[in-house]
Measured scan of single mutants.
Amino acid sequence: CHSECLGNCSQPDDPTKCVACRNFYLDGRCVETCPPPYYHFQDWRCVNFSFCQDLHHKCKNSRRQGCHQYVIHNNKCIPECPSGYTMNSSNLLCTPCLGPCPKVCHLLEGEKTIDSVTSAQELRGCTVINGSLIINIRGGNNLAAELEANLGLIEEISGYLKIRRSYALVSLSFFRKLRLIRGETLEIGNYSFYALDNQNLRQLWDWSKHNLTITQGKLFFHYNPKLCLSEIHKMEEVSGTKGRQERNDIALKTNGDQASCENELLKFSYIRTSFDKILLRWEPYWPPDFRDLLGFMLFYKEAPYQNVTEFDGQDACGSNSWTVVDIDPPLRSNDPKSQNHPGWLMRGLKPWTQYAIFVKTLVTFSDERRTYGAKSDIIYVQTDATNPSVPLDPISVSNSSSQIILKWKPPSDPNGNITHYLVFWERQAEDSELFELDYCLKGLKLPSRTWSPPFESEDSQKHNQSEYEDSAGECCSCPKTDSQILKELEESSFRKTFEDYLHNVVFVPRKT
């Protein structure tokens, strides 16, 4: 048989008469490798580009789960590009990614509803959504962080984005990388972005840091009482949809009607710091009717980097990364020049730590249904340095008659930039024990000054392991946590139920 035959053949030295091919099969003959313009397919066939392209389009058009959109890589027609490569849609070739590779997620039936953290986790790592997304989240724990972890990498949506009755959302900033909504599939009414009845939605994105392009379709905003109209108009300008909307697409009466839409800028007039305090004062603000001013709200939190936005980490279910302080308005003076500047002394802060701070007014709604208010920009203030805590785990070892090696770990709280350490030492008198000992005694162990690591005695271990207080009263049991108490109650309830079950099964009433 021919060298490319495997198993047997019907005619000697003829690659077209093989029972099976050793390498690849091409047009009725066995070959060692697939010549151009053919590609290896499933490690035994040679196919042309049209064959591989037909497989790709067949799966793409069917949208069946589990099928493969075949691509070409290293002269092979394979189910998908290997790690580190992405497909070129024009020629199906796998090309190296520039940075992290995109991950295209194809949605069944063309859309997916995100109504819980669990459903959001199914899209973790996706960068391109081939379909439409509907966000409908009523509640949950730590929602802002969970949504950002699972949806934060999405850069492109081919269909539309719909935010509907998501009472738990305060902001859409968890879509931190969303840059493009194509609108290839539109919501009824030709809408590519749809926001309806979101009672706590206050911000779409921080438009000073976020760009969003909507290729096709219109915007729809109705019944978002805490979303200011200025935020919607800003989205029109940034996304390129200005002029597409009709009169009733953006409701003037049901958007922002319960919001404090600040239209003035508060400026800080005085800032002073110490290692654990920050004193702030800002310019006074009074609405047209000074009785509408209820006070100020001061927001602050630790910020290692200057990239904080107002609604980071917030949701309507209680999660809030900001510390909020309510401040009463100052006494009002008739003389504008003698107006008191409101302020606040922030206490209990960490030394040498940068804080993000902003302040906003708290006002009631005027009778004319106009909203007044003022808010400052987010500023960054760093507390002063102070003395560091003591170095940890000092170790001293003498390696000769004239040297001592000293080692330690950095302090747990540096409280500033540590530039150097101060080492103090003092000579001590020799131990009298060394002169009084009889060095001729056998088995004498000389006193040693070398360091030995501390260890816990058996008594201390027994005390720590004991669940009861000892007789001397030195140790006591740790208080039980809520989960331990709940577990004990469940076990007790189970024992009672099981005992009742045994009584009912074992003891049967005697027939009379």
Score class of each variant (00 low, 15 high):
residue 113 T to F: 07
residue 139 G to R: 07
residue 286 W to N: 09
residue 138 R to S: 11
residue 207 W to M: 13
residue 177 K to V: 06
residue 280 L to H: 01
residue 218 K to V: 15
residue 400 S to H: 09
residue 305 Y to S: 04
residue 373 G to L: 11
residue 385 A to T: 14
residue 376 S to R: 00
residue 122 E to R: 09
residue 119 S to H: 03
residue 136 N to Q: 02
residue 144 A to T: 02
residue 122 E to C: 12
residue 367 D to S: 09
residue 321 S to I: 05
residue 122 E to V: 14
residue 118 T to M: 05
residue 326 D to G: 04
residue 383 T to S: 05
residue 201 L to V: 08
residue 377 D to S: 14
residue 281 R to N: 11
residue 131 G to Y: 01
residue 392 L to A: 06
residue 237 E to C: 05
residue 133 L to N: 00
residue 344 W to E: 07
residue 171 S to V: 03
residue 195 A to M: 06
residue 393 D to Q: 14
residue 347 R to E: 11
residue 197 D to T: 07
residue 211 N to H: 14
residue 200 N to M: 05
residue 166 S to D: 14
residue 400 S to C: 08
residue 400 S to D: 13
residue 407 K to W: 15
residue 185 T to W: 05
residue 293 L to G: 09
residue 144 A to Y: 12
residue 191 Y to I: 14
residue 346 M to D: 00
residue 273 T to A: 04
residue 250 I to N: 10
residue 389 S to P: 03
residue 249 D to Q: 07
residue 274 S to H: 09
residue 231 E to Q: 15
residue 393 D to F: 12
residue 271 I to K: 15
residue 292 D to C: 11
residue 114 I to D: 00
residue 333 S to E: 14
residue 127 T to N: 12
residue 275 F to S: 09
residue 288 P to T: 09
residue 391 P to D: 03
residue 330 P to N: 09
residue 223 Y to C: 10
residue 291 R to L: 09
residue 104 V to A: 03
residue 299 F to Y: 03
residue 127 T to P: 03
residue 351 P to S: 07
residue 336 P to K: 08
residue 233 H to P: 07
residue 239 S to T: 05
residue 401 S to D: 08
residue 266 L to Y: 02
residue 217 G to F: 01
residue 242 K to W: 14
residue 265 L to S: 12
residue 211 N to W: 09
residue 190 N to C: 07
residue 291 R to Y: 01
residue 136 N to H: 11
residue 311 F to T: 14
residue 207 W to C: 05
residue 294 L to V: 00
residue 246 E to I: 06
residue 109 E to H: 12
residue 297 M to Q: 02
residue 337 K to P: 13
residue 257 D to I: 03
residue 151 L to Y: 01
residue 268 F to R: 00
residue 277 K to P: 00
residue 181 I to Y: 00
residue 410 P to T: 06
residue 335 D to W: 14
residue 328 D to P: 15
residue 115 D to C: 04
residue 170 V to L: 14
residue 333 S to T: 11
residue 162 K to I: 06
residue 246 E to M: 12
residue 227 L to D: 00
residue 244 R to I: 07
residue 238 V to W: 14
residue 343 G to A: 07
residue 286 W to K: 12
residue 387 N to T: 05
residue 294 L to F: 10
residue 344 W to C: 10
residue 282 W to S: 01
residue 281 R to H: 07
residue 120 A to P: 02
residue 121 Q to R: 14
residue 255 N to V: 04
residue 258 Q to I: 08
residue 399 N to K: 15
residue 174 F to P: 05
residue 144 A to Q: 15
residue 131 G to S: 03
residue 256 G to T: 03
residue 155 E to F: 15
residue 130 N to G: 04
residue 214 I to K: 01
residue 214 I to C: 03
residue 203 Q to V: 05
residue 410 P to V: 06
residue 135 I to Q: 01
residue 339 Q to H: 11
residue 378 I to C: 05
residue 119 S to T: 05
residue 134 I to T: 04
residue 210 H to K: 13
residue 300 Y to R: 03
residue 386 T to M: 08
residue 380 Y to A: 02
residue 350 K to M: 09
residue 354 Q to P: 07
residue 397 V to M: 12
residue 293 L to M: 12
residue 213 T to Q: 14
residue 297 M to I: 11
residue 298 L to W: 01
residue 402 S to G: 01
residue 237 E to L: 09
residue 109 E to T: 10
residue 114 I to L: 07
residue 192 S to F: 01
residue 285 Y to E: 03
residue 215 T to C: 10
residue 338 S to V: 07
residue 351 P to D: 02
residue 284 P to Q: 15
residue 287 P to R: 07
residue 239 S to M: 11
residue 107 L to P: 15
residue 294 L to E: 04
residue 287 P to M: 10
residue 236 E to F: 07
residue 126 C to N: 01
residue 199 Q to V: 13
residue 134 I to L: 12
residue 205 W to K: 11
residue 321 S to P: 07
residue 154 I to P: 00
residue 244 R to T: 10
residue 175 F to M: 11
residue 350 K to W: 15
residue 363 V to G: 15
residue 355 Y to E: 00
residue 359 V to Q: 00
residue 284 P to I: 02
residue 370 R to S: 04
residue 109 E to A: 10
residue 408 W to K: 00
residue 354 Q to A: 07
residue 118 T to D: 15
residue 367 D to C: 15
residue 360 K to Y: 01
residue 256 G to Q: 02
residue 357 I to T: 06
residue 359 V to R: 01
residue 209 K to H: 09
residue 298 L to V: 04
residue 112 K to A: 11
residue 279 L to S: 03
residue 291 R to I: 07
residue 117 V to T: 01
residue 147 L to A: 14
residue 261 C to P: 05
residue 252 L to I: 12
residue 320 N to M: 10
residue 339 Q to V: 11
residue 244 R to L: 11
residue 298 L to R: 00
residue 286 W to A: 04
residue 199 Q to S: 04
residue 184 E to S: 12
residue 177 K to F: 07
residue 293 L to P: 06
residue 188 I to Q: 13
residue 292 D to L: 13
residue 249 D to N: 06
residue 193 F to S: 00
residue 166 S to R: 00
residue 400 S to Q: 01
residue 278 I to P: 00
residue 244 R to K: 13
residue 127 T to A: 05
residue 125 G to R: 04
residue 372 Y to S: 05
residue 193 F to I: 09
residue 213 T to W: 08
residue 159 G to K: 01
residue 312 D to Y: 07
residue 298 L to S: 01
residue 163 I to L: 04
residue 247 R to N: 05
residue 211 N to Q: 14
residue 259 A to K: 13
residue 206 D to S: 09
residue 336 P to I: 07
residue 152 G to Q: 04
residue 247 R to K: 10
residue 244 R to F: 02
residue 346 M to V: 13
residue 110 G to L: 14
residue 199 Q to T: 12
residue 277 K to M: 07
residue 156 E to G: 05
residue 132 S to D: 10
residue 195 A to C: 09
residue 223 Y to P: 00
residue 173 S to H: 12
residue 110 G to S: 13
residue 151 L to A: 04
residue 248 N to W: 05
residue 401 S to I: 15
